[in-house]
Design a protein around this nucleic acid. Structure first.
Lengths: 160, 160
DNA sequence: TCGAATCTCTCGACGTATCGAATTATTTGC
DNA sequence: GCAAATAATTCGATACGTCGAGAGATTCGA
């Protein structure tokens, strides 16, 4: 093996260690946010899912979270009481309830990541445009990999 | 503003969006791992902490988690039953109980991140050594930023 | 050596999240 | 129109995690 390949191998190892640290730290950060607002991880997950689907109903939330409909009712009570979502009856079918985000979750995330951005500004300043592009490309690849690996962890199909 | 600066600004915005996606995904991955082994987030947190301290005792775990000693006893029961840790009495002071990792947690993480590595191999192959170095540097910076921002979220001091 | 201090565990109680079954309100199909 | 189907909620039961008080074992200090 050439000297270059050896150095590459070391870098890849370092990279993997960094990824693990980052994953662990990400969990701690989210847990800290959840604690701050008195939410549990189920609630947080529901909030994230609510962000993705535009016309989310309570029943649909039960489907994608795997909870019973009664559990979802209790969950929505908690989220509504904490000011993260609102219930809004569907005018077209008044049995149904839309779950709409109040934007508070987004606000909080923006605040947190704003703090992080400040810390990272110094780092990004050291990068020329090309390096910045590498960082963007790499991060996108990490996200894709994380998405692809999910079904193998849960043992379920990707979409339900 | 020059054309170059404008492009930079866009890249930074994209980067921030990617960071948020990654954080959300990291939580989902860890949650999935926890579910798979019947652990809750408190248990996972304790496992992470156990990895850091070499001679961890039950009492010390109560301190750093903020749980009561009885809660820690129950927590250790769960972790021990699931095969993640072992209790080992301190020969020097037989009142105390050391919490030692069986390595199962490490194993599982290695397996998960191994799956991710496979997915990422194609991406890394596209990088020359210099780009790889950029990825490593950047990831390190993200981790540092996440670490620094924690106390501002929790409102507590960094170390206790 | 003997009492106080320390470390962990046990026990009983409490809060909370979840479930299944029954309930209410509304829509759909005949 | 009226019965069946559907959406969400309420209610009672259950499981689980946590706490506080106290017990048991061990060590420390006079």
């Amino acid at each position: 093996m050439s000297r270059t390949s050896k150095r590459r191998g070391e870098l890849v190892d370092v990279l993997e260690g960094l990824l693990r640290d980052m994953a662990a730290r990400g969990v701690l950060v989210h847990q800290a946010i959840a604690d701050r607002f008195g939410l549990n991880s189920t609630d947080l997950k529901a909030l994230d899912l609510a962000r993705g689907e535009p016309n989310l109903t309570a029943g649909r939330l039960a489907e994608i979270t795997g909870l019973s409909t009664s559990a979802v009712t209790a969950l929505l009570d908690r989220l509504e009481r904490a000011g993260f979502v609102e219930r809004r009856r569907d005018p077209a079918d008044r049995r149904r309830v839309f779950v709409v985000s109040t934007g508070r979750h987004e606000e909080e995330l923006t605040r947190i990541f704003g703090l992080m951005s400040e810390r990272m500004r110094d780092v990004l300043r050291r990068y020329d445009d090309e390096r910045l592009a590498v960082a963007v490309d790499f991060l996108g690849a990490v996200n894709d990999a994380a998405r692809d690996v999910m079904p193998e962890i849960t043992g379920r199909e990707p979409a339900e």
